Amino acid sequence: MPISKTAHKIDIVPTWSFRDDQGRTLDPQLFILLRHIEKDKKLTSAAAKAGISYRHAWNQLNKWADFFGTPLVELEKGRGARLTALGDKLLWAEKRVIARLEPQLDNITSELNLELSRLLEGSRPSLRLHASHGYAVELLPRFAQGFELDLQYRHGQEALASLAREQCDMAGFHLPVEAIDSQMRAQAQKLLKPRAHRIIRFITRQQGLMVQPGNPLNITSINDLAREDIRFINREPGSGTRQLLEALMHRASIEVNEWLDSSGVEYTHSAIAAHVAAGMADTGFGVQAAASQFGLDFIPLAQEQYLLACHQRTLGMPAVKTLLSNLQSEAFSNEVDKLPGYRAEQSGEICMPDEILSGESGI
C-alpha cells in the first residue's frame, strides 16, 4: 500500500525574528546552520547542508556574533567547529519551542490542508479524528489514502468526550497494557457504551523516565522521583501521560506532591525530552521515542496501548474501512517499527469496550 502523497500540502513551521533596540534584524537561517554545526562539528559540511557557501556561513556567524555581542560558534584549527554556550542555548530554545507548539501547529495545518484539498480536488470522503498527540498518530495523514483526515489533537478524555457529543467520528486515547487504574477505567467507561461503541487497536508504546546520557544521577525507578536532588519536569494536568505517572506513583506508595511541578510542566513528549536534554531538568516521564529523538537514556516503566474508539455504525464508513486496511498493512507496520518503543502487531483489530476496560483495579 503506497503512502498517500498530496499534490498541495501546507506545513507550518515556527521561525524566529531577532530585532535589537536599533531595529536591526537578522536572517533566521542561522538555526539551520547551528543545527548542522552541532551535528557535524564542521563549518564546511554545515554550510553545504544549509545550502549556502562557506564564505556566506562565515559572514553570517560574524554578523550574529556582532548582533549578540558574543560568538555563537567557536572555530579551532584541526578541531572543527563547536557551539558556544549561547549558541547551544539558542538551538535548544528553538527545539523546545517547536516541541511545545507542535500539537497546535499540527491542528492548524490539518484544518488548512483539509480546506485546500476541498477547494482544489472537490469533496471526498472524510474522517474526523480527535486524538491524544503522539508519534504514531502523526503518521496517519500519510496513510489517509482516498479520504480526507481531519486530525485534531486533544487530551484522550477530551477526545472521548468529543466522540460522545458526536463532534468527531473517532477518538484516540491510551491506557496501560496491564490492569487498568480504576480511575482511568471509570473515565473511559463513562464515555464508551458497550452496545454503541467499538475500540480499534492502534499501537503499543513504551513509557518511562528520560534521563541524561549515561544517567549521571543513577535514576533507576519511579521511587527516585522522591529524591530531593532530582529536578523533574512534569506533563500538564489532565494529560493521559500524567495520569499514568500518578497511577504508577500511587502503586509504589509515593505521595503525589506539588513539588513534582517545581521545574514546570510541558505539553508534549518531545517537549519533555527537550527540557531534559537542555539540562533544565534531571528527568521527565514520556515515551521512549522522544528520549531517542533527543539522545537521552530511557528507563522503561509501563507499556501502553493506544486505542481508537468509534461508534459501531462508523465502522461502515468508506474512510474507516480504508483506514483499517491501512493500519493492517505491512507499510504501516514498517513505519511504526522505526519509532523506538512502538509496536503495531494488533493494529486494526476491532474489540468490544469491555475487552479493553475489564481488569483488576490498579495498574
Rank of each mutant, 00 (worst) to 15 (best):
T25N: 02
E255W: 08
R128L: 08
L315I: 04
Q22V: 07
L191D: 05
V13W: 12
H56K: 13
F298L: 05
G279Y: 07
A188M: 04
E335M: 10
V97A: 05
M280R: 12
Q312M: 02
P353H: 09
E94T: 00
L339I: 15
H275E: 13
D169H: 03
I272G: 00
R79V: 09
E121P: 06
R128G: 10
P353E: 14
T25G: 03
Q22S: 14
R343I: 06
A290N: 03
S270Y: 11
Q328W: 01
W16C: 01
L357P: 06
F18S: 10
G51M: 10
W259C: 02
A273G: 08
D21P: 01
S45W: 09
K193E: 08
V256A: 00
L209C: 10
T241R: 01
R198A: 10
A273H: 06
E360M: 08
K63I: 12
A309P: 14
E102S: 15
G134I: 02
K39F: 14
V336E: 03
A278E: 08
C168E: 02
L43D: 00
L30E: 13
E111N: 11
H36P: 00
P141L: 11
E360D: 07
P237R: 07
R185N: 05
Q303Y: 11
E121R: 13
G80D: 05
A131F: 01
E121F: 05
A7V: 06
V287M: 09
T109D: 14
L301E: 11
P213T: 05
N257A: 04
Y306W: 11
R231W: 13
I219S: 05
F294P: 06
E349T: 12
A274G: 15
L30K: 11
N62K: 14
L324R: 11
L119Q: 15
D88K: 13
T204D: 12
D20M: 02
G51C: 12
V336F: 07
E255Y: 07
H269A: 00
P125Q: 10
L151I: 08
D150G: 06
Y342S: 04
G134Y: 00
F232N: 11
P103H: 15
A278W: 00
R313D: 13
L116T: 07
R227K: 12
W259A: 05
S132Y: 01
V177M: 15
Q312K: 14
N113R: 05
A136R: 07
L83Q: 03
A252N: 10
E178C: 03
A302T: 09
F173M: 03
F285L: 09
Q243N: 13
Q187I: 12
L301V: 11
Q157F: 03
G208V: 01
Q303G: 00
L323Y: 08
R96L: 10
G69M: 12
H174W: 06
D224W: 11
D297L: 02
M170Q: 07
F147W: 06
P194Q: 14
D181F: 12
F31Y: 15
G69Y: 09
L327F: 09
L244W: 10
R79S: 14
P216H: 14
L307N: 02
N113A: 04
